[in-house]
């Protein structure tokens, strides 16, 4: 984990979990220039998120996406972006930044499972790095569920994801214990789902501490650099 990776952005962060590598940059608060953004007055800032996937991001055995699947991949990316935005929306103090937009840009450099959770965590770090006011840091985690063996695998890789019967991703606002995003696809029983979500929560708590440490150390680092001529 590191912050301040994109020189021109207001805030940015890079997150690496084995093969999964995500980079996020925050631009804003700035004037909302998207279509229709200027016409209407917003009392709150608009949190916008966009996800780009590097062409070489998916594991090597995957066939390159043909033009056929291209549209559905674009739709999946949009869905992904909406998920990231919803996870963070409730925690960013949007009312502080009227008439502006906060743009989150995520680039998935490598995807070896858990890209959604990694993106959310990376965006949280980038928002904090940008100095945007938040109620708390949102941390996300994912698990893979195996229905026949009742096993919950923490932080699955791409291979584990493709073999699991279901994948669940949960974003948690740790300090007041609120789930801000939940997403499970694939089949599972009630018991297993509950077990999975509990696993996600405890992972989130661990991550929260780690991310705090990262931010503090990057802040200290920066201060050191400023003091030295």
């Amino acid at each position: 984990m590191s912050t301040g990776t994109v020189s021109h952005a207001n805030g940015s962060a890079y997150l690496e979990l084995a093969g999964t590598r995500v980079m996020a940059a925050v631009y804003g608060p700035r004037e909302n220039t998207r279509a229709g953004g200027l016409q209407q007055f917003n009392e709150q800032a608009v949190l916008q998120c966009d996800v780009a996937r590097a062409p070489f991001a998916s594991p090597r055995d995957d066939a390159r996406i043909g033009t056929d699947a291209n549209t559905s991949a674009a739709a999946a990316d949009r869905q992904f972006a909406t998920s990231v935005a919803t996870a963070l929306q409730s925690s960013v103090r949007l009312e502080k930044y009227a008439k502006s937009s906060i743009d989150l840009f995520v680039t998935i450099i490598g995807d070896d499972g858990g890209a959604l959770a990694a993106s959310i965590n990376c965006c949280t770090l980038a928002l904090a790095d940008a100095g945007i006011e938040m109620n708390d840091m949102v941390t996300a985690a994912s698990v893979a569920l195996a229905a026949n063996t009742n096993i919950v695998l923490w932080d699955p890789t791409h291979l584990e994801e493709s073999r699991a019967s279901a994948i669940a991703t949960q974003a948690l606002r740790v300090s007041d214990n609120l789930v801000t995003l939940l997403d499970q696809s694939g089949e599972s029983s009630l018991k297993l789902s509950v077990k999975a979500l509990e696993a996600c929560s405890s992972m989130s708590v661990q991550l929260h501490g780690l991310m705090q440490q990262t931010l503090v150390s990057s802040l200290l680092e920066r201060r050191k650099q400023q003091l030295l001529p």
Partner: peptide, 15 residues
């Protein structure tokens, strides 16, 4: 061969 500038990389490049 392709070179891409995702919107992340600078303030001026947009979607």
């Amino acid at each position: 061969t392709n070179v891409t500038f995702p919107p992340m990389c600078s303030a001026s490049s947009r979607l």
